[in-house]
């Protein structure tokens, strides 16, 4: 069914900390690795070793620069994947029912054996979260690593989405937004977690924690003490030699 559920028991999603993300793209690579070899069709690359390689990715990191007049620019790395919207337009446009939102946890998934590859869901998504796989002709998207988070065959600490598990900066958090006491709900409340393009009316579940406005911090030159030579006060024989030679 491609009508959306009235409500979901859980609202699983991600919090992405734009203040912490260092833009290393490790989440992009670990996402591709996990999802090309597990749930559904592999994430193909076309012309991988040629002049114009293109490929399917479920997660991509953009880098933006924000600038106020007469102030230095601030750079923010911006990972982007499916936001598992509550009012997901990609679900209702699907003519086959392949695109659906799960009642139990709110994850938006594609049943690839029903997907006809019309691409309408990708058109309807304002965030560019869906990519048609050029080799398989079916729509691919973030599954929140549905084959990891409930997987009892892997160690418990690995039962989070691959991108969250791999992030070396700890910029990605996974949890249930329906639970006000969950890590993601608390982070969102405390740090003012943002919705992307709320005017599109999609009610995204994932939240982004805003970066601190670095340009407003008073400029402190942390290298200054190191760059001006301070008179050295060395003790012992070398200190005596230094002082004596100075006097000559």
């Amino acid at each position: 069914m491609t009508t959306l559920p009235q409500s979901t028991e859980k609202k699983l999603g991600l919090v992405i900390d734009l203040d912490t993300c260092v833009g290393c793209h490790a989440c992009v690579i670990s996402c591709k690795e996990w999802n090309t070899s597990n749930y559904g069709a592999p994430l193909s690359d076309m012309d991988a070793y040629g002049a114009e390689p293109v490929g399917t990715f479920l997660n991509r990191v953009h880098t933006f620069e924000v600038k106020q007049e007469n102030k230095p620019a601030q750079v923010t790395h911006f990972p982007k994947s499916c936001l598992h919207c509550e009012d997901a337009p990609c679900v209702t446009v699907c003519p086959t029912g392949a695109s659906y939102k799960r009642v139990e946890d709110g994850i938006v998934l594609v049943n690839e054996s029903d997907c006809i590859g019309c691409g309408l869901c990708a058109w309807s998504c304002p965030y560019g979260a869906r990519e048609m796989d050029a080799a398989e002709g079916v729509m691919k998207k973030c599954t929140l690593c549905v084959d990891r988070i409930y997987n009892e065959n892997i160690p418990e600490e690995d039962r989070v989405p691959s991108c969250v598990r791999t992030c070396p900066a700890g910029a990605r958090h996974f949890g249930d937004f329906a639970d006000p006491e969950s890590n993601v709900s608390i982070l969102t409340a405390e740090r003012g977690g943002m919705e992307l393009m709320p005017e599109q009316g999609t009610k995204p579940v994932n939240r982004y924690l805003p970066p601190r406005p670095k340009t407003d911090i008073e400029q402190i030159d942390i290298l200054a003490p190191l760059l001006t030579r301070q008179p050295e006060e060395t003790g012992g024989f070398l200190g005596w030699l230094d002082r004596t030679l100075e006097k000559l």
Partner: peptide, 19 residues
């Protein structure tokens, strides 16, 4: 600004594409 949520910090421009 609304697409990235960064509009509150100033004028947003793309510095680097993801690929």
């Amino acid at each position: 600004g609304t697409a990235t949520g960064l509009g509150f910090l100033g004028k947003v421009r793309l510095l680097e594409k993801p690929h």
